[in-house]
Design a protein around this nucleic acid. Structure first.
Length: 578
RNA sequence: GGCCCUAUCGUCUAGCGGUUAGGACGGCGCCCUCUCACGGCGCAAACCGGGGUUCAAUUCCCCGUGGGGUCACCA
């Protein structure tokens, strides 16, 4: 989270004319290493104690550090380094920010994608700006038509709505669908061709494959051998006119370090010799992701690109591409991937990751958002329950984690159960109705659904459990006689039989049939008999619910009402006659 | 294998040089209790290893090791 830079203190600075040997302070000047503000943390070796070192600031390449002149001798004795710390908030927002979520519609929105959107959204809401949804559908082969719609629905479900973009209204940079922007990418590729930053490649898929295998056998990194790199542009165009198929490759500069300041990872560097000339336009004339997205991010004026870590290896390509196109790259933040319990990247193949499945299971959006936000980020402190608007308040890009986090389904369940318990009962009823209807419960069956729901709310982990939890209210399950008895409750057959009889006769006399009244009357009865509560209440609960586990006897009886309760007790009574 | 990223309880994490290393999920136990759940209380459970720097390292640096990502005419 904190980034440090080591600066060597040149002895010439210490002795320079800018530092007359006064009894006060020596000033050291430095040139810029970063566009972020820096502060001096300490020195190495510690020839100067931190306390005697004033905190100098370097901003935009100009700044100074002060030493007391009495340390001058030490500084001159051996090479000394300054440990410079990047200021607490390297993420300096100036003006409106623009971010985007750019999924490729090859499958349904998955939780990893949703978490990425969430962080984009939190950032843009916190600092103010525009959030665009762009459809990166350059690969028409893998296009899944419903996927695009599912993405929109998923975002709406989560309450994360972009200000503009695919499915959310046009803005100044429409269209937001890459398959509708083909010509723009081609024009960009043409520019690269003209400037020598790209070249036509006539290599066949077979040759490429052979080369890959060969290099692999020789334990070399797979890399294009630049077979076509030196074909003059005019000659290449001639061959294409004659009908030859060619791709366009981006020409990497030779022998160059690419260093990027990533917002979550700090300084990251690559050497171009470890990279290869990527294909940016396919032989069918369609642009590939790298070109399309770099171009769009630039042209759509994105200030920040927050995306998953799997993109980190192609970041140098993107930076170089942007430069070759004449654009200033946006700021990047590469989020750690979400892992499964095998510590592998969560995948559609092996893990349940489709947002749709979570929705169907009955995960509340609040719970999902809360859970996802904490998978790779947290505000510090011990509170863990945050609403979306509270997350916006608390969000800070510096607190994003670097290491991948394992997706813990149990924890999601726990958070979901928490949010269900917090739901006002009328809202909860609205949410579970579809599940009950799907399970063919006739909702008009004289059951007060609100009352019933409130008896099961605290044991519901997912909305989809509602039919199971509430089923006995609609129809008494056919239970085994033995369930009425319970050894641990000290209910044998005789006690059970007596209990049912007592309940029936006592129940019939009760005119004011409410949960409280029942509790009052029946507990009194238990006391009269000298029984334990369970001896009367276990058979009662089983008779009313037919279930081993259920809400309490009084609650259930209250919801069922006098008539239905007595009817169910009579059913139990008959079981003793057999 | 190359390149890149990363490292505190089983899991999510707090910690930004000196702490009995804190919380949550999960596990276990107890309490509450008519069952289950909720709730309350408690227990077990972690600084990957080795070198530095420092009076002092979980914390800073280096090297290992482990884990992950990525190496397409996919995104």
């Amino acid at each position: 989270m904190n980034n440090f830079i080591i600066l060597k203190i040149p002895t010439s600075y210490i002795n320079s004319s800018e530092n007359p040997d006064l009894s006060g302070w020596c000033h050291l000047r430095f040139s810029a290493l970063s566009r972020n503000s820096l502060s001096v943390e300490s020195t190495f070796p510690r020839v100067v104690t931190p306390l005697s070192l004033s905190k100098g600031i370097l901003i935009d390449g100009k700044g100074f550090v002060k030493f007391h002149s009495r340390h001058k001798k030490n500084l001159l004795q051996s090479p000394c380094y300054l440990i410079v710390r990047m200021a607490d908030n390297p993420f300096k927002i100036t003006g409106q920010i623009r971010v985007r979520f750019a999924p490729s519609p090859t499958g349904f929105l998955h939780i990893g994608g949703l978490r990425n959107v969430l962080y984009n959204y939190l950032l843009v809401k916190k600092y103010g700006g525009q959030f665009t949804l762009r459809l990166d559908d350059t690969d028409q082969k893998r296009f899944v038509p419903e996927a695009a719609d599912a993405i929109i629905q998923g975002l709406k479900w989560a309450g994360i709505e972009p200000n503009e973009g695919f499915g959310f209204g046009d803005g100044p940079h429409a269209p937001y669908v890459q398959s509708q922007r083909k010509d723009l990418y081609l024009a960009a590729a043409e520019k690269l061709l003209e400037s020598g930053n790209a070249y036509y490649c006539f290599c066949s898929a077979e040759r490429l494959e052979e080369m890959r295998k060969d290099r692999e056998a020789r334990h070399l990194p797979p890399r294009y051998d630049r077979h076509c790199a030196e074909i003059p542009l005019a000659e290449a165009r001639g061959r294409i006119v004659k009908g030859e198929k060619a791709t366009i490759r981006f020409r990497l500069p030779d022998d160059r370090w690419v260093t990027v300041h990533d917002l979550v990872r700090g300084e990251v560097s690559w050497h171009t010799s470890d990279l290869q000339d990527m294909v940016i336009v396919k032989s069918d004339g369609l642009a590939l992701y790298h070109l399309a997205s770099v171009y769009d991010d630039a042209v759509m004026k994105m200030t920040h690109v927050i995306r998953s870590e799997e993109w980190l290896p192609s970041l140098p390509i993107h930076i170089l591409l942007a430069e070759a196109l004449g654009y200033t790259p946006p700021q990047y933040a590469h989020l750690p991937v979400i892992l499964n319990d095998q510590r592998k990247k969560l995948s559609k193949r092996n893990d349940s990751v489709a947002l749709r499945d979570f929705i169907e299971k009955g995960v509340l959006p609040e719970a999902m958002i809360n859970f996802l936000a904490f998978l790779g980020w947290n505000p510090g402190g011990e509170r863990e329950i945050f609403s979306l608007s509270e997350l916006i308040q608390e969000f800070s890009i510096e607190r994003l984690h670097k290491a991948g986090a394992v997706f813990d389904y149990k924890k999601l369940e726990n958070i979901n159960a928490y949010y269900i318990r917090q739901k006002p009962i009328n809202e909860l009823v609205g949410l579970i109705k579809p599940y009950l209807e799907k399970a063919d419960f006739t909702l008009s069956a004289g059951i007060d659904l609100s009352a019933a729901a409130s008896t099961v709310r605290e044991r519901m982990k997912y909305l989809s459990e509602a039919p199971d939890l509430l089923g006995f209210y609609f129809q008494l399950p056919d239970y085994d006689f033995a369930l009425l008895c319970n050894e641990k409750m000290k209910v044998d057959k005789e006690i059970a039989r007596q209990s049912i009889d007592i309940l029936l006769s006592a129940g019939e006399k009760i005119t004011d049939w409410t949960e409280d009244k029942l509790r009052e009357v029946l507990l009194l009865k238990v006391a009269e008999l000298g029984w334990k509560n369970g001896q009367l209440l276990w058979p009662m609960r089983v008779a009313l619910t037919g279930e081993q586990f259920s809400p309490g006897s009084f609650e259930v009886a209250g919801v069922l009402g006098k008539e239905e309760s007595l009817r169910r007790l009579e059913i139990a009574q008959k079981k003793f006659l057999k």
